[in-house]
Structures are given as C-alpha cells and as structure tokens.
Amino acid sequence: MTMIPHPTRAEAPLPLIEGTARVVRIEGATAWLEPEQTTACHGCAAAASCGGDTGDSRGFGSVASRLAGRRFALDNPGSLRVGERIVVGVNHGALIKAALTAYALPLATTLSAGALAEWAAAGDLVAMASMAAGLGLGILAARIGARRLADRGELDPRFLRRADAGPVAASCGELSPGSVA
C-alpha cells in the first residue's frame, strides 16, 4: 500500500488567506477596493449586478450596497487602475486573531458574569443584568484589542497579484463596465 506524503507545517510555509477584490477608486497613493462577493453560485465578477435589480443595483439591502459598505483601502503598488480585479491576502492566523478578539472576548466576559451570578445564587433577572453588563464590558475590551491589532498592522491586507477574469454566471445579470480586467 502506497502512503501519500503530506507536507507538514514545518516543511511548507504558511499560506496567506487570499481574496479577490475590485479597484473602485484611486486617490493618490491609495486604492479603494471592494471585495468580490462569494456566493453559493461560486461568486462571479457580476456580483455588483446581482440581486435581481434591473435598475439601480445599489439600493438598500442589495448585494451591491453591502459590498459598498465593505470597501477598504490599500497602498497602491503603482499601476492599479479602476475596474481591475486583484488578489489580496492577509497573514495566516489574522482571521483567527480577529475572530477571537471580536467574539471570544465578549463571550468570555458574558459567561464569567453569568457564572458569578450563579455562584452568588442570584435570581434570573440579576443574572440577566450581570450578563448584559459583562457583554458590554467585553465589547469595550474587544474595541481596545482590535485597536491594538490594527496599530500593529496585523490585519492589513496586502496586494499579491492581478486576478484572472473570473467566471460570470449567466443568471447574474449583466456585467458592470470594467469589472473584469
């Protein structure tokens, strides 16, 4: 029986978490990017027109409006143009650190407050109030933690390469001009 060799973590460099984004604006040395929506139909370059709208696709609650809300800035490596699709990456483990900061910290304070209330044999209403207070405290702690992570630049995305033209699903409406490099 042939054993299939698996690269171990010591042998292989840790990969970046990659995602595709589209350049929507250039301001001097800064490029503004919109992440490409990944959906159950495997995501495509027509995401900005997705949602069944025939007119203004940036209406409230549409996919396009959600994408606009998730725009982010990147140092322009020089030759990026509006409409280009590029691949950006963040460090391995950044997602875990971000998730731990945003979710685990508030949960830990909330549950600790609940455990304290239970230990003190408090009633349900007191437990609810103490857990709500714990949640608020945890959100404050998460805010401080997130600021520290951002200051250290651990969450910053990096330009990796230009993306190939992505697949366009036939049911996703027309492609917006310049959305494919």
């Binding site: 992440p35 998730r70 982010f72 971000a98 998730a99 945003a102 959100i139 951002a150 969450l155 910053d156």
Partner: peptide
C-alpha cells in the same frame, strides 16, 4: 453593527460570515 463600530478592519474580515 457592533463589529463595524469596534473596528472597520475586523468588519472587512469577519463581516462575510454574519449573513
């Protein structure tokens, strides 16, 4: 809303899972 308020960068990374 809270994550967007805490850190826009965190929101960029984690917002995709919430819906």
């Amino acid at each position: 809303l809270v994550i967007r308020k805490i850190s826009p960068t965190l929101f960029q990374m984690l917002g995709i899972y919430l819906p």
